[in-house]
C-alpha cells in the first residue's frame, strides 16, 4: 500500500545553516510514527517543512500521493494534514471555543458543530472552560486545546510536535493516553518527541535523528531494546 506521507531526501536551510540533510521517511495509514532525537536534531524543522511553514531546497514531500512542495502553508490543512506546533501556540487572547473554531477555519456546514461536540466530549476540561480566554488555561489544558484545535480540521494525518514539553509527569501520561486513544479511533499520527521512552512505547515505528540526518530506524520495540538508543536517549 502507498504510504500516506512520503518524505523523500529533503534538505532544509536556515539561511546558510544546513538544518536537514537529506531526510527520507514514510508514514503508513493507521500508524503512529515517531521522530526522536536531541535538541536541535531537526525534528521540529521536519514537521514545519511538511506543514509548509518552512520550505525544502531539494527533495520532495508527498501526501496521499500528491506533492506538497508547491502547496502554500494555508492550503495544507485542507488536504488533511494538521500540525500541533511546538509550544502549543494556541491563540491566547481568544476564547477556547474561538480557538476550536479557528481549527475548523477551512470547513463549513453542520459537521463543524458535531466535531466541536466530539472534541468537547474527548476533552471535558475544554467544555468547562469554553468561554474562557485561552491565556488563562494551564499548560496541560493548552496542550489539549491545541490538539482539539488540530482535530477540528478532520486531519487524516495528525502531527504532534513535543506534546509533552513543559508538562508535569502526570499530565504527560494523560497526553500520551489521549494520543493512543486518537490512534485507536483511526487517526494516523506523526509524533516528534524528546521524551523518547514515552514516544517509542506508543509508536509502531520510529526514526532517530541526529544533527539533521536519520541515523537509525525500526519498530518502537526494536528501538527501545537497542543498546545504542538506550545509552543515548533513554538514560542508560
Amino acid at each position: 500500500m502507498e504510504p500516506i506521507l512520503k518524505v523523500d531526501d529533503i534538505n532544509v536551510y536556515y539561511g546558510s545553516i544546513h538544518a536537514i540533510k537529506g531526510i527520507s521517511f514514510e508514514v503508513n495509514q493507521g500508524e503512529i510514527v515517531t521522530l526522536i532525537g536531541a535538541n536541535g536534531a531537526g525534528k521540529s524543522t521536519t514537521l514545519n517543512t511538511i506543514s509548509g511553514l518552512l520550505h525544502s531546497k531539494t527533495g520532495s514531500i508527498s501526501f496521499m500521493g500528491e506533492p506538497l512542495s508547491k502547496v502554500p502553508c494555508h492550503k495544507v490543512v485542507s488536504k488533511g494534514l494538521a500540525l500541533v506546533p511546538e509550544g502549543r501556540r494556541v491563540f491566547l487572547q481568544m476564547t477556547v471555543q474561538e480557538n476550536l473554531e479557528m481549527g475548523a477555519y477551512t470547513r463549513s456546514g453542520k459537521g463543524v458543530d458535531e466535531d466541536l461536540e466530539k472534541v468537547y466530549a474527548r476533552f471535558p476540561r475544554l467544555k468547562e472552560r469554553f468561554k474562557q480566554v485561552a491565556g488563562t488555561l494551564s499548560g496541560g489544558e493548552q496542550q489539549m486545546l491545541a490538539m482539539g484545535r488540530a482535530l477540528m480540521s478532520q486531519p487524516k494525518l495528525l502531527m504532534l510536535d513535543e506534546p509533552s514539553m513543559g508538562l508535569a509527569p502526570i499530565l504527560v501520561e494523560q497526553i500520551f493516553e489521549i494520543i493512543q486513544n486518537l490512534h485507536k479511533a483511526g487517526t494516523t499520527i506523526l509524533l516528534v518527541e524528546q521524551n523518547a521512552q514515552a514516544a517509542l512505547s506508543v509508536a509502531d515505528r520510529g526514526y532517530v535523528l541526529e544533527t539533521g540526518k536519520i541515523v537509525t530506524s525500526g519498530t518502537g520495540k526494536e528501538l527501545l531494546a537497542s543498546p545504542a538508543i538506550k545509552k543515548a536517549y533513554l538514560g542508560g
Binding site: 494538521a82 481568544m94 477555519y105 477551512t106
Partner: peptide, 16 residues
C-alpha cells in the same frame, strides 16, 4: 485576531 496573535499558527489553521 488570530493573525494578529500568531501568523504561523494562523497559517496552520488554513488562514490566508
Amino acid at each position: 485576531r488570530a493573525c494578529s496573535e500568531d501568523k504561523g499558527a494562523a497559517q496552520l489553521m488554513g488562514i490566508n
